[in-house]
Amino acid sequence: MTPIIETHNLTVSYNRRPVLWDVDFSLPEGRLIGIIGPNGSGKTTLLKSIMGLVQPDSGYVKLFGQSLDEVRTRISYVPQRESVDWDFPVSVREVVEMGRYRRANLLRRLSSADRDIAADALHKVGLQDFAKRQISQLSGGQQQRVFIARALAQQADLYLMDEPFAGVDAASEQAILQLLTEMKAASKTVLIVHHDLQTVRQFFDWIVLLNTHLVASGPVESAFTEDHLRQAYGGQLTILSKVADLVKERHFPVREKPYKDRP
């Protein structure tokens, strides 16, 4: 089976400082994949280089075994919530309908089929009653769900999400998790930049552990180990002690079944 994402010797730098160095991995289809690593470890940059938003110094990315431009409509990118001005004068519905914009229809009006797809996506994230609201009148979690609804409206096969759980209330977190489960059941692949180590086992079944270099890529059971975490978070004492605490509290039961497989 062709891997859904392959990166080959990917190196990216900002102002000559490498952010990703020689990153090489391939990811299987139909998984919920977490990109984990300390701050500044290149997680967001990895997502942006997969999406072609930053140019690598060397190396390349293949998606569905092809180049990005051939498969762009099968991919949906959800940037960080902070990437937009939430005071912008648009309604929730208008943002979700942007998920139906394509290069081909940019100069035409949206079809009623497109509008229906957007309305359906809004329903899936549970915000149908908020369609007419201006986007600043939503909570952080609801704003994140609007972004996810826009992504759902794109009807992609591969979703790249940057920190969708950051600053999100419990209800929205549950709603997003529920959606992720449904997406996985529909054999979609979701790649998520995530920073909260505590929830990694609960959310994902595959992880990519980064610290500029690739530390590990594999199923959570084999890749999310104390050893790998120490490699990734090495110098950061506070997190290191947190990792030790977590291990002490047996939050990382190496042999026990992961949360999501429990009955």
């Binding site: 999406m51 938003l53 409509t73 990118y77 940037p79 937009v84 942007m98 290069r103």
Partner: peptide, 9 residues
């Protein structure tokens, strides 16, 4: 509104 999203499509 969201240049990154525009670029991604």
């Amino acid at each position: 509104f969201n240049p990154e999203h525009a670029a991604s499509i």
